[in-house]
């Protein structure tokens, strides 16, 4: 079988920090995409980082007192306020550094949360923190439902997914709406760096984290994180599911710098059939061919919007010069 990343074994050790900042021993499920993504994120950020974490899987599995999987300074306060806590930490570090009370060097604040803590209950705090221009990164790990509480639908759940609060049934297709477009909402906040990412493309994701770190201001990354438990697929299918989401056009990987869109993982002219992505997942098992067409229509509408933006969007800096 061909390696999914060319010459991975050759390059990976040189490209990736060997230090682990998010360690083994945490209690996430086998094959958890989110835990993998966070590990990669931590490597890309390096030691001069403070992490604020919304309540959710990543909080409960990583820090049951008195243990912690984190080797970065880390704080959890509540479910809806990771971004607001991050804003406070950022302001404090800025103030204390200016007054000479802490070391005079850059420390990046990174706030993380799941899709529930970001698309839904934490939405206002993210909007406020990004709009006010804090020097921080927000990364949403989107596994498309409230997995920590038992697979309830969120504003990030795609059409047709069966969840415990919008289950498929004789009269129900499951979730009836498409995902909220968080990246676009963040672009509308004039956030200088916005990107979508997935743990199945580790170098692309880590590059984006590094880029976000360099921004002197707010940055936002929407990372698709496969949840085998909630998606009802085998735990060893995690990486594959992420790649299929991208290759079918359901979750294209792009970045938006100062309003200018760019695809970071080249998409094939002819996308993979969407069924390849849906079939292995138990949450979509009930979909009829007609319903699969509706799913496809919704996904392609979003995909084509991204292609249009790539063609027509202009950088804000181009416009001012």
């Amino acid at each position: 079988m061909k390696s999914i990343v060319e010459n991975f074994d050759l390059f990976a050790p040189k490209l990736v920090d060997k230090e682990e900042y998010y360690c083994s021993g945490h209690r996430a499920c086998q094959g958890c995409g989110e835990a993998l993504a966070i590990r990669l994120m931590a490597k890309a950020l390096g030691k001069d980082t403070v992490v604020t974490n919304a309540t959710g899987c990543m909080e409960v599995t990583a820090t049951p007192y008195p243990t912690t999987a984190w080797k970065l300074p880390w704080v959890h306060v509540a479910f809806p306020n990771s971004a607001a806590v991050g804003a406070g930490v950022e302001a404090a570090l800025k103030s204390l550094r200016r007054k000479g009370k802490i070391a005079d060097r850059d420390v990046k604040v990174v706030s993380i949360g799941g899709d529930g803590g970001s698309f839904d209950i934490g939405f206002q705090a993210i909007s406020g923190a990004m709009e006010r221009g804090h020097n921080m990164i927000y990364i949403v790990y989107d596994n498309e439902a409230y997995m920590n509480t038992g697979i309830q639908r969120s504003g990030a759940t795609p059409y047709g997914a069966s969840t415990t609060t919008r289950p498929a049934g004789k009269q129900s297709v499951g979730n009836t709406t498409w995902k909220k477009n968080m990246a676009e909402i963040m672009v509308a906040h004039k956030v200088p760096y916005v990107a979508t990412a997935c743990h199945s493309y580790p170098f692309d994701f880590m590059d984006k984290v590094k880029k976000a770190k360099k921004v002197n201001g707010p940055a936002f990354i929407h990372c698709l994180a496969v949840c085998p438990t909630g998606w009802r697929c085998p735990s060893d299918a995690c990486i594959k599911m992420g790649r299929l989401a991208v290759e079918t056009g359901v979750f294209p990987l792009y970045e938006v710098e100062n309003g200018k869109y760019k695809m970071t993982i080249e998409m094939p002219k002819k996308l993979r059939p969407i069924e390849d992505y849906l079939k292995p997942q138990g949450r979509f098992r009930h979909l009829t061919p007609d319903q699969i067409q509706i799913f496809k229509g919704m996904a392609m509408l979003e995909y084509n919007k991204v292609l249009e933006r790539i063609k027509h969007s202009k950088s804000w800096s181009d416009m001012t010069s």
């Binding site: 403070v50 604020t52 704080v75 306060v77 509540a78 809806p80 306020n81 971004a83 607001a84 806590v85 991050g86 804003a87 406070g88 930490v89 302001a91 404090a92 570090l93 103030s95 204390l96 009370k101 802490i102 206002q124 705090a125 406020g128 923190a129």
Partner: peptide, 15 residues
């Protein structure tokens, strides 16, 4: 909600 959240974060950072 964010006022007290930000204060909590800032206090946790030593401010």
């Amino acid at each position: 909600h964010s006022a007290l959240s930000a204060c909590t974060g800032a206090s946790a950072a030593g401010a």
